[in-house]
Amino acid sequence: MKNNRNKKKKLRALLILFIVLAIIIMIFLFGSRKEKIRHERGADRTDQVTGKKADLPMKQVTLFFLSDTDGLLHPEEREIPESDLSGEARAVVEELIKGPQTGLMRIIPENTRVRQLFVTADGLAYVDLSRQVTEANFYGSSGEMAVVYSIVDSLAYNFKAIKKVSLLIEGNERETLGGHVDLSNPFQPDYSLIAR
């Protein structure tokens, strides 16, 4: 009798132990995955902010800026940290906003921010800019063309996966930047505006 009771007690204790163990294992298995992702992202961010750090792989890209001499877009090489497609595309637009390092012109209005950038599976990049991009005195036809196509051409030139670019302002569709170039349809690159 006693023996039997002891056996039952042991069994119950073991059962509870196993359940607890199983739950811990499950939490470990499922919980750890999320944490891993968060770690990766965290690392990524700090690296972008601090720029070149340690042996972070960099990628060379070509940016197009307006030239004061001929009014055409000219290339300038730049290094950006390697990342996923939308991350790299975002870095390209941010570099365009920062402006050129050689004698070319900075055309995207100051203080413009990239609010969001994402690329759809069929190659349409949505570039969502803050409203500052619409605030410029020089927005005649030529001025608007230069701003739009420096972004569109730079993105399409560097990333094969980007076929078209759509510009959004503060998250919304907008007709034009300043009354000329139509923003309501996505842009395909126009390399005729680039100096040969």
């Binding site: 307006l66 009014g71 005195n137 020089f138 005649g140 036809s141 030529s142 300043g178």
Partner: peptide, 10 residues
């Protein structure tokens, strides 16, 4: 229209 550019010499 009248044109506008960032380049003053345009």
């Amino acid at each position: 229209h009248a044109n506008g550019s960032k380049r003053a010499k345009a």
